[in-house]
Design a protein around this nucleic acid. Sequence first.
DNA 1: CGAGCTTGTTGGCAGTGTGCCAACAAGGCC
DNA 2: GGCCTTGTTGGCACACTGCCAACAAGCTCG
Lengths: 219, 219
Amino acid sequence: MTAAAPRWNRLEHDERRAQILACARRLFSERHFGAVSTAEIARAAGVARGLIHHYFGTKRDLYLEAVRSMVSMPLQPVPTELDGRDPEQLLAEGVERWLEMLSRNRETWIAARGAQGFGRDGEVEAILEEAREGAVDQVIAALRPGADPAAAPAELRAVARAYAGLAEATSLEWLQHGRLTREQARALLYESFIAVFRQVLDAVESAGDPAIQPKAIPA
Amino acid sequence: MTAAAPRWNRLEHDERRAQILACARRLFSERHFGAVSTAEIARAAGVARGLIHHYFGTKRDLYLEAVRSMVSMPLQPVPTELDGRDPEQLLAEGVERWLEMLSRNRETWIAARGAQGFGRDGEVEAILEEAREGAVDQVIAALRPGADPAAAPAELRAVARAYAGLAEATSLEWLQHGRLTREQARALLYESFIAVFRQVLDAVESAGDPAIQPKAIPA
DNA sequence: CGAGCTTGTTGGCAGTGTGCCAACAAGGCC
DNA sequence: GGCCTTGTTGGCACACTGCCAACAAGCTCG
């Protein structure tokens, strides 16, 4: 027995980083920030506590990284781009894919959805906001094929964002509270999409048309 | 000069408590939990740090108390109970009151709405959930006058909760992003309420009717 | 095949913030 | 005016984070 088993094994930079991040993500999903110590994360990853700071800097940096990696999945149902196909069929497919994604990543999605610090945590908010804007882009791209989503009128973005709020709440009613079956959730997402973008959007646009509005956005 | 000004003045129990809570609420609204120290809260309130723990226990207890006091305001627009009056008129009034509340408590509402710990902070979630359920009760009470809101079918509650999600996102689009004018926000809230509870609700109910659904809520 | 080097990894030290408690004093009561 | 209640203080002990210098695993080159 020359040179017994090494006391610790050496991993590649990105590999170790990913491993620690995975442990952190799991723990932060189960409990809130303050209830998880870096020592615990290190123990879960089987490394020394110092290594966490070596890879991620502060505990909060690790936390933000975990949030970032969790919201990488879509945050709302989006229809595929229609290449001349039936729009309603595409919407139905999009909703179905959404529900499928949810049932596969139930725990992760619920945790990611709740990611937000109490009042005005700018950094966390920015991460979440960016993810939602990306999802809004996808919806808009499907609604106005060919056009640049970023150039879409503000009202349209706002309405899409409103629908996203409905979609998230609906998903939670199914996944967490169980007050909707999967079929009911599907019906709700499908019907409200049509209702919102067909009827409600018109009303919003005409409400913005007459430029006789003295009060714009309040300070 | 007999017995100069006392070095500190004595307040009644509830008064001091309320004062500290107000300072905590303000600071927690501006910055996230970790970025606020008990020392800072104490300084803002003009008391010794120890007093905070005397009144609230741990820093987290104080935090939860602050969250609790912030979600005491309504979280979604609710129409008044109709005493034989025109339902649409009542809805319009409810939306208007909601917008009025928002413009008056802009900062507080935005902060309260974001109250949530990252993934699975049971205590914060429970507080927020309770507040939202209360708002849902009000909506249901308006929709089904006389009946007990708690006895309402699960689908109805779920649909109301979905609308609440839409309403919160809409409000944020107006207040924070400025992508909607007040009039547009009003139109969006009004039209989508009608659409959701008139058309979408029916679809959800009929999707739940045929008991030929093998898969209920996934584990 | 061993010496040397790169760099992933460790263990511990210093600084900061929280939780708690015993002593103090402000203001009311007799 | 002395006593008593209790709101308030200051500081001690502990926990945890952030950081760094030393260590060693495993590759490379002679």
